[in-house]
Design a protein around this nucleic acid. Sequence first.
DNA 1: TGAAATAATGTAACCGGTTACATAAAAGCG
DNA 2: CGCTTTTATGTAACCGGTTACATTATTTCA
Lengths: 339, 339
Amino acid sequence: MTSKSQSVTIRQVAQKAGVSVATVSRYINHNAPISKDVAERLKRVMEELHYVPHAAARQLASRKTRIVGLLSNNLHNDFFIPLLNGIESVVRKHNYNLVIATYHSDSRDMPPPIGPHNTDGMLVFSDGISDEDLISLHVRKFPMVLVHRASPKSVKIPSVTVENKKITFELIEHFIKVHGRKRIMFLRGPIHQDDSYWREIGYKSALKANNIPFDEKLMLNGDFERDTARKTLNNFIANKKHVSFDAIFTGDDDAAIGVLNALHENGYRVPEDVSVIGFDDLGFSAFLNPPLTTVSAPTEAVGQVAMEQLFSLFDKQFPEDITLLPTKLITRRSCGCNA
Amino acid sequence: MTSKSQSVTIRQVAQKAGVSVATVSRYINHNAPISKDVAERLKRVMEELHYVPHAAARQLASRKTRIVGLLSNNLHNDFFIPLLNGIESVVRKHNYNLVIATYHSDSRDMPPPIGPHNTDGMLVFSDGISDEDLISLHVRKFPMVLVHRASPKSVKIPSVTVENKKITFELIEHFIKVHGRKRIMFLRGPIHQDDSYWREIGYKSALKANNIPFDEKLMLNGDFERDTARKTLNNFIANKKHVSFDAIFTGDDDAAIGVLNALHENGYRVPEDVSVIGFDDLGFSAFLNPPLTTVSAPTEAVGQVAMEQLFSLFDKQFPEDITLLPTKLITRRSCGCNA
DNA sequence: TGAAATAATGTAACCGGTTACATAAAAGCG
DNA sequence: CGCTTTTATGTAACCGGTTACATTATTTCA
């Protein structure tokens, strides 16, 4: 053994088995008939040599990476666990690899770390990448599926997310009709985030349908993040003592944690003083203090469906433009139910 | 434009800029002096052509992938969010890509999806891969760092995890000395899991130090998972009504959720009837019902440190064999404190 | 039974970069 | 000012696979 840790190549296998490299390649890829005895010989030799085909060489020659990407602006939300599990299960089933990267389009001069140069396609979560970049990749035929994000208007990139508007309408009406709340705060998510947009629409239309005027002072930024939500609400309470509120739709469950925290720190009782509803129904939500009323969203299924759609694009099949998975209100104590 | 979506190659760039491919390569990699005007010309041409170097080709030629892997047996625990964030931040800083894969060594006949053939090194989380495979990779000089797992005895693979034994000793004593508990249950994690092992040692030694006999009926499998923990405890309660218990160390916070759930379903009050302590201090833990007493573990830092160590291996530097990050008991209501 | 189809394999070009080696021009220097 | 260094660039082999094309052996079948 020389000092250079030379890896075993297909030619070494071929030589040792007394066949050509083409035959070895065919054996590896099962894409041409191989005689019984040659196959057995190859199997044995490959084991003896611990041969594993070099991924980059295969990729270069075959023009396929068997890698799919997931691009996101960050990985902070607990929500990623079910999403990732859904994605990963499908990737594994198809025998692909998954690369995960975060990217903010404001990190200009850096191109997205995932693209046609290193993957066969990708899932785009949220607003990590600009419409412009998205369109540019799409016209170059790079397979993509959007997750919790709408396609830019000028193109049709498949998009998978959950029903937001209708359920938000319902939950706001729940505040109003079941618990008699009128001063309902909405912590929206990141600006331009698509779920947040539709939740906002649902929020406003429910207010309107119930003759409650929209008060922009009650719509704050929660960023779908624990810490932002907590800070935002703390600031609000500190600076706007005169602005009353009796309910909060926190945007999502992660933000709900920050909200419960801030309310608690400031002496508000939930649900007596303030009624609270989240979104996602993460694993811990039923066990918060108080148990969180929330919207159950099939996040793992979103990941699975999106990834299946990406694979269907590889086969030149075209999924629905928009796939909306169903959501459902889960009432627990934080809104005032089950007291 | 021909119908084949031929990607732009380095030769096209070279030709259009009137230089050789070697010069283009040098410009891309900044590894040799380039004259000012050639550099500018190349920059312009590359932009015009939307040139992006083909990853596989670079990998094949340079013998480096600039990809690191994370191998795990699953991605179910919320604990992964901080871990992934720690890992990802370091990966991004070094301008690498991250591939994530799950793998059970019992899925025999399949080799691990991550290895020398497609990455420059990897982080191994937990028991997804056998000692045997680990050793085999290690002797072939594949850079690895273990996360929350000990190195096989016969080799020295750097390992990063948290202080388990001492803190578990402390928290068990907390049950005993502060809250007068004597029938303390321990839900261990997956068998052979290293953290679980040391927590078990800490548990037993605390019992011994306080003259409480170890009762094996009180040590059950919780798997560090919500659902397993809930089922295990439900079964226990159903089948062993005669076996009393007044405290539970749940193993980790995720399992704590299942435990709180099961206790609630069976009419036990926490902390009055049963005192509960978790491990990890995940984001939601302070807001469970009741707020969970737990051990704060620097999970994000574990991810960062492990990944930094992996990169240091690339530079032929050798980190500590074992890195133990500090842990701390956080008392909240579930144990009986702050009542 | 001879022609056509099929099975099994080999040869060598090619995928798109990197880099060792060579060379020419410019700069440094005694 | 001739000689050594340094700067800037080009040529072409090479990384480890895949696959088009060619070839021979074996079946199939009218």
